[in-house]
Design a protein around this nucleic acid. Sequence first.
DNA 1: CGTTCGATGCACT
DNA 2: GTGCATCGAACGT
Length: 203
Amino acid sequence: MILRREFYARPTLDVARDLIGKVVVHDGAAGRTSGVIVETEAYIGEGDPACHAAPGPTPRNEPLYGPPGYAYVYFNYGMHHLFNAVTEPAGSPAAVLIRALAPLDGLDVMRRRRVRGTGRRAGDLDEAAVCRGPGNLTRALAIGASQNRTDLTHGPLVIEDRGFDLGQIAWSPRIGIRVGTDRAWRVYVPGHPAVSGPPALRR
DNA sequence: CGTTCGATGCACT
DNA sequence: GTGCATCGAACGT
């Protein structure tokens, strides 16, 4: 069942928590690729120094100010696309960053995309590492700039509820930011092999 | 296990 | 020109 817009039109911390166990599905020319969400982070409002809305509205962050249930995809570090789901009613700039997935459909396709351009071989890549990390999962699912601003409530890129229950969750400070580290707005499945970050933050 | 560092493009000051 | 919501290789412990 595809998540409805009402799912996203809620407090961002609730959405970040409830997205754990949901499934990101991307149907493309190479077929279906998908994975179960095991790690997310919340970015909330102009008062959150780590949120892209912190400087106020700009051309890049405009999707954050729009209606919930849309994708916010941006390019970072000159080589990675990062995938967010916009949350809260229009006018409240906030989103949930998808940080890691447990692979479901299209594992071979995702493996090949992950090693393309590198000297590594697809067979050397552990299944749990295929969608571990926000830059890795967008490469595996072929999520890029053309998915920015797309509607997540109908294909080809959607998030579904398939009834998975991953058990206990844990909260920690967000990873990879230099400001706003005081907020424990990262959610993850403790001990899951597909969760990213240093070992201490995976338990 | 940990830290450091280069790759690489663009939004923003 | 500066600074990234990153990744993986290389190296030290």
